[in-house]
């Protein structure tokens, strides 16, 4: 077992804030253990040293926003045995996908002195829209615990224990009281993918939906309750769904329904 070649791990960045790949550095105690069992072949945030491909496991952060990146992800896919997209940008297009709901040309003309220098795609899209993805780690940012679990599962040749049920399950396991029912706080927990260990509701805040839609999300029923039970306006509903996972199908659809 011990004698076998260490698997090569590569970390790739596309349009993103680096927060997700920094989760790997943030592993602290586990980081040395990770470095012990994999060869970190490409991780510019940690080292300038780059080992050539192919790679056993590629962690891909960020969304595809330029023609150049759309090409680059194909090359990375070809060099990777397993490709896992990490974080809301890579799995749903990220916060920058808000531009998908407007004309990006207009933004360019407002923001840049020389818009003609900018070569960008009209939409910010998730990695899975471009290449086959073996697994997606959700979150903005991803959870450190889930990242270590993913790498451990990869090394152990097993399925990672990562559930796609609601944040509500995590609240109940922790013993949290439902903030929506007891405090009348709008919460996206019932339609949001677990993984954060119910971070915000544990501090009496409603869930912001950082991990994107859960399996079989019923967003229309939740919105109905927000409007009728919590006096949320259509504008509130649009704002709640248009954040880090705005372009994830279920959230995109729900926000569009409530747009003026």
């Amino acid at each position: 077992m011990k004698a076998r070649r260490k698997p090569k791990l590569a970390v790739w960045k596309f349009a993103s804030c680096d927060g997700c790949q920094l989760t790997l550095l943030d592993c602290e105690d586990e980081l040395l253990a990770v470095a012990d069992v994999v060869e970190i072949a490409n991780f510019p945030e940690a080292s300038r040293e780059v080992a050539r491909g192919p790679y056993d496991l590629s962690l891909v952060e960020g969304s595809i926003t330029t023609p150049h990146d759309a090409e680059r992800i194909r090359t990375i896919r070809k060099q990777s045995k397993f490709l896992v997209s990490i974080g809301a940008c890579a799995t749903a297009g990220g916060i920058q996908a808000l531009r998908n709901f407007r004309n990006v040309r207009e933004f360019l003309s407002i923001v840049y002195a020389r818009p003609d220098y900018i070569d960008t795609l009209p939409h910010s899209t998730p990695i899975a829209d471009h290449v086959f993805v073996d697994f997606e780690l959700r979150g903005c940012p991803i959870s450190k615990v889930q990242l270590v679990e993913l790498i451990s599962a990869f090394l152990g040749n097993r399925k990672p224990n990562i559930s796609s049920h609601s944040v509500c399950v995590e609240c109940k396991l922790r013993g949290n009281t439902c903030v929506m029912i007891a405090n009348k706080v709008p919460c996206l927990g019932p339609v949001t993918h677990a993984g954060c260990d119910a971070l915000c509701p544990s501090y009496n805040r409603g869930c912001f939906g950082c991990f994107g839609p859960k399996e079989t999300p019923n967003t229309s029923s939740l919105s109905h309750q927000w409007s009728n039970g919590l006096s949320a306006s259509d504008r509130d509903i649009v704002h709640a769904y248009r954040t880090f996972n705005a372009y994830a199908e279920a959230f995109k659809k729900e926000a569009t329904t409530h747009e003026p």
Binding site: H165, S166, C168, V169, K172, L173, C178, G189, P190, V191, E215, T216, P217, N218, S221, L222, H224
Partner: peptide
């Protein structure tokens, strides 16, 4: 089912 969120709160509670 139109209303149910399949959030699992009922079963946990």
């Amino acid at each position: 089912a139109e209303r149910c969120l399949s959030c699992a709160n009922c079963t946990m509670a």
